[in-house]
Amino acid sequence: MSYKHSLDCSNLLCPMPVIRTQNALKELAIGDTLEVICTDPGTLSDIPTWCRINQQEVIDTKEHDNQIIFIIKKTAN
């Protein structure tokens, strides 16, 4: 499945993937989904935490090889 909005955060270290995600979500409409591709294992904790405190929803997290892929739904402005 390919996502209309995708963000490649490969090789970026936290908190850069969080910052990029935060900024990318600002550009989306409520209800849109964003795919975020990361390689830093720190994102496994940071991205869901950021989403929780900013009322955004992580709808899926996949890990394979050295990649971590999040699907985030924009649920608040």
Binding site: C14, P15, V18, S45, D46, T49, R52, I53
Partner: peptide
């Protein structure tokens, strides 16, 4: 634990 402390504080 690899939490980001700023995020932890906010939470």
């Amino acid at each position: 634990q690899k939490r980001n402390n700023a995020l932890w504080v906010a939470e």
